[in-house]
Computed example of a mutant assay.
Amino acid sequence: MFRQLVQEIVGYLSELNLLLQYLGTFLISFIPFVESLGGSMIGSLIGIPIILAVIISIFGNWISIMSIIVLFNTLQRKIHNRDSKKGFVHNRTLKARELYDKYGVPGLALIAPLIASGHIAAFTSLALGVNKKRVVYWHIISIVLWGIIGGALGGYLNNDIIK
């Protein structure tokens, strides 16, 4: 089923003009669970040069995750200014933060694309009170790493999946 879906996406994007292929690769990398890994892999499978597919996917995934970080940070400031350190929610946040401290931002950012989504990992990190700069830093590393892996994987599988 997954192979068929990838073949359909690759087949559809392959028929588009070059600009739309770039745009499609960019937009695919916005999607949670697909991200830079899937975007760069599909981009390289449709014939976009691997380095360019990786760059396009990294940029698309970066924009989508940074949007979540900025929106969450704005919302968090509004909520915090309204009502801080009260009751059940505050106690749950402290307990969640203790568990999160065991694994840290690096572990969550780097592993999330395999088991969940970088979007969810960024949201979770911020919800637990991690410094925004630290979340951004580790998610940029994760996006770049997974984008490169996806591009390499797409280049390697190029002949196998399309045929």
Results as ranks from 00 to 15, higher is better:
L110I: 12
A109C: 00
H90F: 10
F33E: 00
L99V: 02
S40G: 12
N73D: 07
D160I: 04
K86S: 12
I58N: 06
A127W: 01
R134I: 05
A109L: 03
L126A: 04
G38Y: 02
Q76R: 12
G151R: 09
F2L: 15
I79C: 09
I162T: 13
S29G: 10
S84H: 14
I50D: 03
M41S: 15
I69T: 00
Y12S: 02
A121I: 04
G118Q: 10
V70K: 11
P49A: 04
T93S: 14
K132Y: 09
S64D: 01
I115E: 08
I149Q: 12
S84I: 09
G87H: 08
I28P: 06
Q7F: 08
W62M: 11
H90Y: 15
N61A: 07
A116S: 15
L37Y: 15
L110R: 01
S44E: 04
N81P: 02
T25W: 03
N158Q: 14
G24W: 01
L37G: 11
I162K: 12
A109S: 10
K133E: 00
G43E: 06
G47L: 00
S117M: 12
I51M: 11
L45R: 11
D101Q: 04
L13F: 06
I46F: 10
E8W: 10
I143Y: 10
N17R: 15
A112N: 03
W138M: 05
I143G: 06
W62H: 00
D101F: 12
L75Y: 05
I65A: 07
I68G: 03
R97Q: 13
I50F: 10
I48M: 10
Y12V: 01
T25F: 08
V34Y: 11
L37D: 00
Q76N: 14
V54D: 09
F2M: 09
I42M: 13
V89E: 13
N73F: 05
I149P: 03
G43I: 08
G11C: 02
A121P: 04
F123S: 00
R82L: 14
F33K: 09
I50L: 12
L5I: 09
G47P: 06
Y156L: 14
I120L: 14
S29A: 15
T25S: 15
I42D: 03
M41T: 07
I31K: 09
N159L: 07
N17P: 11
G150E: 11
I161V: 13
L114I: 13
F72S: 05
Y137K: 13
I58F: 15
S64M: 08
L71C: 07
V10D: 01
M66W: 09
L5D: 01
K85F: 03
H90M: 02
I115M: 10
A152H: 00
R77C: 04
E8I: 05
I9P: 05
S29R: 07
Y22K: 03
I68M: 13
S40R: 02
G60E: 06
L75A: 04
Y103I: 06
G107M: 15
M41H: 03
I9N: 02
I50T: 14
A122S: 11
L108T: 08
R134D: 11
G60H: 03
